[in-house]
Amino acid sequence: MSRRPIRSSETQIIFSPESPRYDRTCWVCLASDKDDDAGPVLKDWVRPCRCRGTTKWVHQACLQRWIDEKQAGNAAAPVLCSQCRTQYRIVCPKLGPLFECFEEYEKIIDAFSPLATAFLVLGGVGWCANRFGMLSLTQTLGSDATAALLENRDPVLIHVTVPLIPFVLAGSRFIDWHTYGLRLYWWSQSQLKRFVLGDDGCERNEAEANSTSRMREPAELKSSSDAATITRRVMGGLLLPTCAAVCGQLLFDGLIEEQWKKSLLGGFVYVLGKGIVKMMYRHQQYVRQASRTILSWDES
């Protein structure tokens, strides 16, 4: 079957962009030149970017709606073509002098608002940290000793070091020394058994224990890192000077006169005692996990 040859005039009519019958297709609504009878709004075509082919042309009204969705209410936000990444050139009618001044004022406020907010937040945090640091020094050293300490020091050094006190206290609670102490306890137990019983006796003891005991070796318990644990550690670090002062007052009131010595010893006793109790508790958790059993399903 022979094909009818295409005349050059027909090719010019179909594919020439300058021809009014050029078949353009909107990439938003997928309407073409043949569908322009639907309304006069769809007759306004625009080529807003470097795209070619089917994504070259778009209706002005369709593109306006698409840009509104992309800007999401922010009329000053730039919009890029999703294909060639060309920024659309959006031109709006000029405002009057009064509204142009107001628009520039809004731009200046938008530019400086993040900086001003950050300055106020950091200033508030610094002021609170400075007050808390002074309170911690007063609790541990006493009011007279704190006043004498700050009186003979450089003000710049004071304003830099005192606000760091709450951050140092909170950060110290994230040093998990209990785990290292518990591992040292387990290691010392094994070394003591090997020293007393010897290698052969220790191996026989472990074999007998495994044959008669139901205990297994569970995974090592790790500290939780959820939000409750983090906030608990932060609060524990911030309350450390208060707990140290209270323990020092209760334990060493009649023995030591200086407030800072009582607070130092009280804090040492508080941290050491709490750490030992926590290590014993974690050891019991480990033993409990090693002795756990799983029950069979009871169909009744």
Rank of each mutant, 00 (worst) to 15 (best):
W177R: 03
F195C: 10
A129K: 05
P163D: 14
F167R: 09
A209P: 00
H178Q: 12
L141P: 03
D199L: 06
C128T: 15
L149N: 03
E208D: 12
G181Y: 05
S143P: 02
L149V: 01
D176M: 06
L197M: 10
G133Q: 10
V162Y: 06
F119V: 07
S211V: 04
R194F: 08
L149F: 01
T138C: 09
D176A: 08
E208I: 08
E208K: 12
W186N: 05
N210T: 13
P166T: 06
L182H: 15
Q189I: 12
A170K: 10
G142K: 02
K193E: 13
F167N: 07
G198Y: 13
Q139F: 02
H159I: 03
F167D: 10
V125H: 07
L149G: 04
V125E: 11
L135Q: 10
S190D: 06
T146F: 02
P166E: 04
F132G: 07
V160H: 11
E203S: 11
S143Q: 06
P163H: 10
C128R: 15
G142A: 09
L169H: 13
F132L: 12
R153T: 14
N152T: 11
G171L: 14
A148L: 11
F174I: 02
F174Q: 05
V168F: 13
I165N: 05
T212A: 13
V196Y: 09
L169K: 07
N205E: 14
E206I: 05
I158H: 05
L122A: 05
D176S: 09
T117H: 11
L150M: 07
C128P: 12
F174G: 02
N210H: 07
L192Q: 06
E151A: 05
T212D: 08
W186C: 02
G171F: 14
Y185C: 04
G171V: 03
I175E: 05
L149C: 02
L149H: 02
A118P: 05
S190N: 10
I158Y: 03
F174S: 00
